[in-house]
């Protein structure tokens, strides 16, 4: 019996420890292929060259255009999702009747469960044609439409995490504000939002991290043309789209072109890893404050 207990505990622990191997494997895979890549391409070129054309005859390996594309779609998505998501969080917490909140929240969650290829289809076939009636010179593939739809997609992420943060603010604080004759709006922006600010910041950081790593939506709707621009009306390419583009083609293993996707991958990983850990750090600090 004791032996059996030990074996079971050992197996359970092994399952948990496997997660460390997964992380190690991700880092190892990205690093080893990237190191081979950087033995052929200078890291300075990688970080400063303004063109990314690894699949053309005249090759340039500057990651900046892909980073710019990623930044552009992410910025548009956050510009849409932050005001709407935060307003929803405040509205549901301070204004909405409990029953309304109970009905609306699961409906909003549906937005988060729809597969991202489906959002891509929507951006390409509905939103872009609609935007073209307003902005006539909008290209068929563009960062604007992809970014806006991505914004809608991450609204529930910001709204529900921010709402958790706001409702975690001690009731006494809210009552103090109302007690001094504040309106709901003054209470919300004067007391609740500042008190919940670290939780709200965490929700935004996680949303950014999500947007940076988003793939199919931008691969479908934002284009596949690496371009160092902040113009949201023209086709661009994100880091993630580039990896998909190469994967769909027939690039031989071990070639420099093959390694570019790992160099792109490690760039993406560094961004999301930094963002995620920043959010953990803020969260931890904030928890210590309230405990």
């Amino acid at each position: 019996m004791r032996v059996q207990e030990r074996i079971i505990e050992g197996l359970l622990r092994l399952s948990a420890v496997i997660t460390i191997f997964i992380t190690a494997a991700i880092i190892w895979v990205l690093l080893s292929e990237s190191i081979s890549f950087f033995s052929e391409v200078s890291i300075i070129d990688f970080l400063t060259d303004k063109q990314w054309t690894p699949l053309f005859a005249e090759k340039h390996f500057g990651i900046l255009p892909l980073v710019a594309g990623t930044f552009l779609t992410t910025a548009i998505a956050i510009a849409v999702a932050l005001p709407i998501g935060l307003t929803i969080a405040i509205y549901l917490n301070e204004y909405a009747p409990a029953r309304f909140k109970k009905t609306v929240k699961p409906l909003l969650e549906i937005l988060a469960t729809i597969p991202t290829v489906v959002y891509g289809f929507f951006a390409l076939t509905v939103v872009t044609p609609f935007l073209q009636t307003i902005i006539p010179n909008l290209a068929g593939f563009n960062a604007l439409s992809a970014g806006m739809v991505m914004g809608v997609m991450i609204i529930p992420m910001i709204s529900s995490l921010s709402e958790d943060a706001i409702s975690a603010v001690p009731r006494s604080l809210r009552e103090a504000a109302y007690g001094m004759g504040s309106t709901r709006l003054q209470t919300a922006f004067g007391v609740m939002v500042p008190a919940a600010s670290s939780g709200i910041v965490v929700s935004v950081i996680l949303a950014i991290s999500r947007a940076v790593g988003e793939t199919m939506l931008v691969a479908i709707a934002a284009g596949q043309q690496p371009r160092l621009t902040l113009d949201p009306t023209v086709p661009i390419e994100t880091i993630t789209t580039y990896i998909v583009q190469v994967s769909l083609g027939d690039v031989p293993h071990g070639s420099l072109e093959y390694r570019t996707i790992f160099a792109a991958g490690i760039t993406l990983f560094v961004f999301t890893f930094a963002l995620n850990n920043l959010s953990f750090w803020i969260k931890k600090k904030y928890q210590e404050k309230y405990d």
Partner: peptide, 16 residues
């Protein structure tokens, strides 16, 4: 580590 894995973009899992 598990919290970190939850935040790794799906395409990175593809590379793995």
């Amino acid at each position: 580590n598990i919290a970190n894995l939850a935040g790794v973009p799906s395409i990175i899992y593809g590379l793995l």
